[in-house]
Design a protein around this nucleic acid. Sequence first.
DNA 1: TTGTAAGCGTTATCAC
DNA 2: GTGATAACGCTTACAA
Lengths: 341, 341
Amino acid sequence: MERKKVTFADIAKYTNFSKTTISRYFNNPDSLTLENQEKIAKALEELGYQKNKLAKVLANGKSEFVGIIIPNLYFHYYSEMLNKILASYEEYNYKFLVFIGNHKKEVERKYIQELLAYKIEGLIVLSNTISSEELKSYNIPVVTIEREAKYVCSVDTDNYTGASEATDLLIKNNCDVLIHINNIFPEYVPSYDRIRAFIDVCDNNNAKYELIRENFGYNYESVFAKMQNIFNEIDEKYLGQKKGIFLSNDTYANIFLNLVIQKYGNLPEHYRIVGFDNSPIASEAVVPITTIAQQIDKIANTAMDLLVLQMTEMKKRKPIPLKEPIHKQIAPVLIKRNTTD
Amino acid sequence: MERKKVTFADIAKYTNFSKTTISRYFNNPDSLTLENQEKIAKALEELGYQKNKLAKVLANGKSEFVGIIIPNLYFHYYSEMLNKILASYEEYNYKFLVFIGNHKKEVERKYIQELLAYKIEGLIVLSNTISSEELKSYNIPVVTIEREAKYVCSVDTDNYTGASEATDLLIKNNCDVLIHINNIFPEYVPSYDRIRAFIDVCDNNNAKYELIRENFGYNYESVFAKMQNIFNEIDEKYLGQKKGIFLSNDTYANIFLNLVIQKYGNLPEHYRIVGFDNSPIASEAVVPITTIAQQIDKIANTAMDLLVLQMTEMKKRKPIPLKEPIHKQIAPVLIKRNTTD
DNA sequence: TTGTAAGCGTTATCAC
DNA sequence: GTGATAACGCTTACAA
């Protein structure tokens, strides 16, 4: 029972209108009399018409597609970001073609070519393999999130402020020594500001501090093993002192917390812990973790706003592209839970 | 510097071939002489040609689009499933249009219409709002994952076997009483088999058991509050007995575990716990949780295989649709960690 | 308010 | 091996 597909031509014939009128029914219905609108509506119903947006796109050049390149969906940060971006469909009606980059530059290049072939109107990039200079060269609207973005528009968390608040809190908690634990990555990555802020705030307060950087690797076992060593060192080195630990994300914070609990049976007064991200693990931990919440919804919305701005401009007869890329920062918020006073 | 877009016509003119030959260069290069292939390759390079797949789709009817309707990306189970499905691009070259359904039937209907307008070749459904009968009525290849699927192809975890293994393990751990904690949902949902298996295995072993079902709600606070009550009741009611707790997912298992730890400072011998899913929280918990791992990669791959099977058939001149929908079950695997003996 | 006809950039059919 | 020509299903001047 394979019914042939119904087109404007069929509807036109059926209603004795022209294809143009049928087109107008969809794109500018007010230009038809109410009576004729109903006539066409009825015909659509009876013939079982099914829109074909691909034909529409070919004709008018507006694909309403947005491409997304995201490193993975394993980290809650990424999946939640994707979630919020996809949700913007309700507001803007853009459809999303999603690719997982897995940090592979050549692969991501290939994906971008595929996206261009589908005439995406804009691109959102969360991975950090392809330089912003190259992204710019594709000549389509781009917004990046939390990555190098010299030549394209971007949205980042205000990492500096976030890390400042975390460090401040630990100082106010009267910690004898502050310790920041983070991964190893280049200075141009936005989140490097967390390290800068930590050091600045410590310096400004004449606080004793230590910065520990480590290649933790990408799986739990690896992170756990390295964190265990770090914990043992700290625990011994600062025996008897109140330690304020600021970790670069909640997963790390949770692992550190678990190590403390496994040793002491609870979270002793001489350990204060702050994480980053406000991922689910922060509230689900044995002792709910104080953290700096990234406002993922705001970041996603801002990114889409910024992209829509550019895409809308491109649809004008004489588009005036941005002279300079726009960079936005979203303030994170401190969420106090039970690992700080 | 807006260069006009280059088309087959331009390349044809430039190389003195016809558009047909250019098309053949891409779709059947062997039908050209090597020399001419190189000639065209060179022209593409020099003109800066950019494929237009939308035009191709309109002409040949094969969009290579697959639609996905997924309830959310908040749960790791869903985001990881999406991750694996998207990764299949490398194997099959299908592009994915993703929509978040949020459990809203009307919204999901709208999304399906949009997907149909983009001429998707197939649809993967993880949400459970629209009946499989309706899904079938859209007359495109469909595969559902872990939901009602009477009239369409489906892939589910073998919930019965998984829950049997969990229950078995607790019995072998010499628990005095077995308790299964689960949400409230209808019997036609595939995971209801976990409840059936729990009861069957308990009965077959003459084990004392209790089934606790509760509407836990969708946010952490709500789940936590309800779980606290349940924990208090159990802890009092079965005082002095060894309790084997089997929870319907790892998030619940972790919350239960935390309640135990908060009361006892550690996981006492008289509490044994098994979760379900093997989500990250299971290994990240204070005491790594024994769980039944869903093989998300296998489920995703099987789903794509099943979808590709149908889509490939539809592309034949005289497609023979499946007489009966195919239903597959993927065996989960027991992962022993530290919450069982 | 409605219609005509020329695109949009490919592929498919049939010819040579 | 290669080429004309007609689709594919819609939009958009331009006319009326």
